[in-house]
Design a protein around this nucleic acid. Structure first.
Lengths: 250, 250
DNA sequence: ACCTGAACACCGTTCAAGT
DNA sequence: ACCTGAACACCGTTCAAGT
């Protein structure tokens, strides 16, 4: 009957989910700073005060955004390990379980969501506390690592290392300097000369990477490749540490 | 003569540096959200509009805060490698240079500043672009790695890996749940039981780490130790990768 | 030059009132 | 129950005015 009433009004009923979806859309389009109780309400064709019937104020909205991000990560990582119908009979050999593959897929899934919503890492790190929904992600990661033979101590450290990477890896090292020398190649060359005079190693690195990326369609700074490199660095390091008391890897 | 005039007024003259220092103080004490043009001016015993003579608005203030943080990191890392008077004659043996020690010290210094100003990582990652002053830090790190024999390509990846760790590592995995079971041990036990039912591996990990930390004054989650572990994981991984084309380390 | 008061547009939020 | 209008305290910022 509630639905019927809403249909009569000619508009979908407001709900916490609809408000959060609109907030995410707005943050993606205009940035998190543009997510305002008033503007958000306007997007939903409603008055600002109506939002308070579904969310406990602005702080509650931000908490809800973090929850939504965590939900997206769950959906993202759930897609990969669900087959067409079932996991199949090849799931019997549990001894062949490689925790690094499993953990790697989860981290890559989390990164997909962070890249989709570039405002998310700053929001998450600025919140006063970690929401309980995040525990489910830690639990899943830790369960895989324990199953893979890691100790609780090493698993704990792994959670720190992987979490910091997922949250810290969005920002690029360099801005491509947009609109700086796009129309004037002479000015661009002069800029680079000044750049090279001040930070010579950095300039040499950019030049070297630019040259190496000549036949790479993804550009000189392939952020995804950098992420996967660091991820494997950490996973391999953890694997090596799990062998025994810190000796070199096999 | 300017100083004389200010002395006559009985108050130190306003300046960009003084405004930024007050903003940092306020952010440390009350959080970044409490840094307001009006409240900041009140701290300085001045009207809000006076700030606009030293800073180009709120965005410019936030840019200035990032710059100040980068300056603090520079000071922090400069303290360690400056001897009482000079570097001394033992600086001649450049062949014994270990880039991992040098890079490690810089990352630890950056972390000291981040821990001192917990609002900094979220602010830095939320800024639209990296300020040019950050290039000097990248340059210093890269110079040490190049001197240590790393390629530009690997140095590039190292900058990404280390930067993401410094920016992502502040937040704790778990909040200690303050004020939850501080007065009622029965309620605390019931809470932990519910916690263990939902995230069993996580609960076992906490219990295991708590037990191991019984004689550790720093508590069960020593964030500094976790940071250094991950840092060494990355540095050793980079070192191994630098040996040749990605074979296992020596 | 540096600082100020009043004003403007905007924000989050409260509250009494509508239906 | 769900939504609204008016109002309040606060925010960043502009501008004409002070000294």
């Amino acid at each position: 009957v509630v639905v019927r009433k809403a249909r009569e009004a000619g508009r979908a009923p407001l709900s916490r989910g609809r408000v959060l979806a609109a907030a995410i859309q707005r943050a993606d389009d205009e940035g998190l700073a543009a997510v305002t109780m008033r503007s958000l309400a306007a997007d939903l064709g409603v008055e600002a005060m109506s939002l308070y019937h579904h969310l406990p104020g602005k702080e509650g909205l931000l908490d809800g955004l973090v929850e939504s991000i965590l939900d997206e990560i769950r959906e993202q990582t759930a897609v990969d390990d669900t087959g067409p119908d079932d996991t199949g009979p090849d799931d019997t050999g549990t001894d062949a379980f490689d925790w690094r593959d499993a953990v790697r897929q989860r981290c890559l899934g989390a990164r997909v969501v962070m890249v989709r919503h570039p405002w998310a890492p700053a929001l998450i790190t600025s919140r006063p506390s970690v929401p309980p929904s995040a525990y489910l992600h830690y639990e899943a990661l830790l369960a895989e690592m324990i199953r893979g033979g890691l100790s609780y101590h090493l698993g704990h450290r792994a959670l720190h290392a992987l979490g910091s990477m997922v949250l810290g890896f969005v920002q690029e090292v360099f801005t491509p300097d947009p609109g700086e020398g796009a129309h004037d190649p002479e000015a661009a060359e002069a800029d680079f000369a000044a750049f090279a005079a001040f930070v010579p190693h950095l300039a040499a690195m950019v030049a070297s990477e630019l040259h190496a990326a000549d036949d790479d369609p993804l550009g000189w700074c392939d952020s995804q490749a950098e992420f996967e490199f660091t991820l494997d660095l950490i996973l391999d390091g953890l694997h090596a540490s799990s062998g025994d008391g810190g000796s070199p890897p096999m």
